[in-house]
Design a protein around this nucleic acid. Structure first.
Lengths: 219, 219
DNA sequence: TACTAAAATTAGATTAGTCTAATTTTTGAA
DNA sequence: TTCAAAAATTAGACTAATCTAATTTTAGTA
């Protein structure tokens, strides 16, 4: 149940792809997620299959086994707990915590996640609104509706963000958007699906479709 | 100023040897510290010399350059701060924190050590009594007198321990010895330098010379 | 000073993870 | 159904870090 750092990153990447959408997980998709070469992915697929962490079938694509899924969830759990720690206890900004948590999530100790969880007061969501898996592997409900997919004329609450890159988060910071911010969707521009929105009741702003697809809202 | 995990471990090993005693630091000594092969050490000595982190001369042995020393101190600083965190915030035991801190010390972020330091209230010593280097690289006074080297008939306070292996720390736990415990040195047995001691005023116990050499005391 | 044992060094192999450059397989559109 | 593009795969090389098995150098003792 202890894997190399690289193996852990592959498990996490496969898990993340499987969360995004219910599509076949191909070597190319994994290579894109990890920004590496499909040839490298093929090698690792062999290794992870040998360790019974994934099943691979050309027709079906890559699938995590029960054991691989569990390991992936434990890594994600640690990642999100460390993010809460970095933001709440060490006062990092929203856009700085992801990269540091990418390193911290690989610290190996059987009781670490549970101790951290308790120390932080058993948080349900991380600072980006993503659900923190419980010790038993259960994942709290996650938000699935994006601002790009909801009706005009209604006010929504920002529940989570999909993209956690610092460029996106810094943009949100500039727009004064955080978890909990209310956004009124004024209209969708049919031409390019741009969104005219009012943030926290302020004057209207226009954002792109891509932007809207990365904002998860409460319905 | 960012090095591989392995490079960091070599820097730390060289630093630790230089702290222990003022002797020539040989490839063999480094190999012993890292429990690896002198041939591997030779390779790494070349690499670290190229990076100007150490100077190596057969006659003089290995010496950290200013830049190498600074990097080593920053790693030690992080190690000891994380130890305080693990013990005080996550309630780990004395004997469990060293190994986890060995991993945490390699987390890379420019502001992490300072934030952690502040969060912990700027501790001066880690749970094993070792001084925590300051942000500017200054290292608080460390304790240098061992129980094996002091006079009989006097009561001392345990200030730090040299060996941080879990076997030694568990032994101390069993003997009810921690940082701050008072030990009265009843007598030294000339035959094998065993020490007869009274821990916290309780009945006498006998410990080995090796034991005494790993207990640092206030004079 | 000569010699032996220890230490240092070199040479060459190994492992994990990666790459590029073929080559083969699959897929989807004409 | 055919065929071109995309995806998957193989082959072979590279890097970092390690090892074992020589070989060379150094140092201490007789």
């Amino acid at each position: 149940m202890v894997h190399t750092l690289t193996e852990e990153n592959y498990l996490k990447a496969i898990f993340r792809i499987s969360q995004n959408a219910d599509v076949k997980i191909t070597p190319t998709a994994i290579a894109e997620m990890l920004k590496n070469n499909p040839a490298s992915v093929i090698d690792m697929i062999k290794k992870l299959s040998d360790k019974k962490l994934i099943d691979y079938d050309k027709r079906e694509g890559v699938k995590l086994t029960d054991s691989g899924l569990n390991d992936a969830i434990q890594i994600v759990r640690k990642h999100r707990l460390w993010e809460v720690f970095l933001l709440e206890k060490l006062n990092y900004n929203w856009d700085e915590i992801h990269d540091i948590a990418e390193e911290l999530e690989h610290i190996q100790d059987d009781t670490l996640a549970d101790r951290l969880d308790k120390f932080l007061g058993f948080p349900e969501y991380d600072p980006h609104g993503d659900p923190i898996p419980k010790a038993n592997g259960k994942v709290p409900k996650s938000f699935s509706v994006t601002l790009a997919n909801v009706k005009e004329g209604i006010t929504y609450r920002v529940a989570a963000v999909k993209d956690t890159s610092s460029t996106f988060l810094q943009y949100l910071l500039k727009l004064n958007i955080g978890i909990g911010t209310t956004i009124h969707l004024v209209e969708k521009i049919p031409f390019d699906n741009s969104l005219v929105i009012s943030i926290g009741g302020k004057e209207n702003t226009t954002v792109s479709q891509k932007f809207g697809e990365n904002i998860l809202v409460d319905e």
